[in-house]
Design a protein around this nucleic acid. Structure first.
Length: 282
DNA sequence: CTCCAGGGATGAT
DNA sequence: ATCATCCATGGA
């Protein structure tokens, strides 16, 4: 199969797919196999910044999904100038916040609660294999993520079989709201941040952290700043080492004011840097 | 306010 | 090889 090529300066495919924002891409040889919506995709990149070579989707789909139009240089220039941020920025060169389909992103992050990245990947895989559609690309098998309507037809027990645990109930309840258009995810794209956040938080299984992830990764609200344990650790240890206790509220207010209009990007860089460097520590 | 639910990878012993 | 720890939401 002949691969299509698009230039991708300031982009690191492997790092982006391994940064905890998307959970289903699988490494095969020199590239990755996955789906963008219902399209099966194979994609590879030599070194970071080199052109992408891909099969399975339109060029415009790839460009949009991987947000190749984001100007990383101006985004990074908007970050605060401090040692912690600069370290993360250098470490995460080429990491982009991608544009994910809304339902898939929402469903993935509902399953993410109290789970680590490796587990979330397993649940995504199980849901896809069980309820999604099988696709083939460049001789590799992959599965689409089931739509809200399909998940809504599943039983809680079936979802539990996919290792969702207590999250099964929340995913099912949210799938029913989304598929009945009681929650119109596409329409919510027009709302201002605060209203969008409030509606997302009204869905079963969605709290402040998950809502911010969905805003950042599916609604392109680049200011949304999800605070998970990793980020809380960075804020406490590196930005406020003298403070005895940092409340959730204090962290939220600091982050909102300090990291600026691309706070979500700053968050993603701090998160990825913290995860990867702590892992190598040994 | 506290406690707890599911569970597999990861790290410590 | 066993044991403890990681994790975010919502309900009791």
């Amino acid at each position: 199969m002949k691969l299509k090529v698009i230039p991708a300066p300031e982009f690191d495919l492997a790092m982006t797919l391994d940064s905890g924002q998307v959970f289903h891409w699988r490494r095969v040889g020199g590239g990755f196999v996955g789906t963008i919506g219902n399209e099966p995709i194979y994609i590879e990149q030599g070194e970071a910044g080199e052109p992408l070579r891909f099969a399975g989707g339109a060029t415009e789909l790839i460009r949009d999904y991987f947000a190749l139009d984001h100007s990383l240089s101006s985004i990074c220039a908007s970050f605060p100038k401090d040692a912690v941020m600069e370290e993360a920025r250098d470490f995460c060169r080429g990491l982009r916040i991608i544009r994910q389909p809304k339902w898939i992103c929402l469903a993935s992050f509902i399953t993410s609660s109290m789970k680590q990245v490796a587990h979330i990947r397993q649940m995504s895989e199980a849901l896809r294999r069980r309820f999604g559609n099988r696709r083939e690309i460049c001789g590799h098998e992959t599965h689409t993520f089931p739509g809200a309507a399909r998940v809504a037809l599943a039983s809680e027990a079936e979802l539990r079989d996919c290792a969702l645990g207590y999250r099964a109930k929340n995913l099912l309840a949210t799938a029913r709201r989304v598929s009945s258009s009681q929650a119109d995810l596409e329409k919510w794209a027009d709302l201002p941040d605060a209203e969008l956040r409030a509606l997302l938080c009204g869905l079963p299984g969605v709290g402040a952290k998950v809502a911010n992830c969905v805003m950042l990764f599916a609604y392109e609200r680049l200011q949304a700043f999800p605070i998970d344990v990793w980020i809380a650790r960075v804020l406490k240890q590196r930005y406020f080492p003298r403070k005895r206790k940092m409340t959730e509220r204090a962290m939220r207010e600091f982050a909102q004011g300090y990291f600026g209009e691309h706070g979500g990007y700053a968050q993603q860089y701090l998160f990825h840097h913290a995860r990867k460097t702590s892992r190598m520590k040994k």
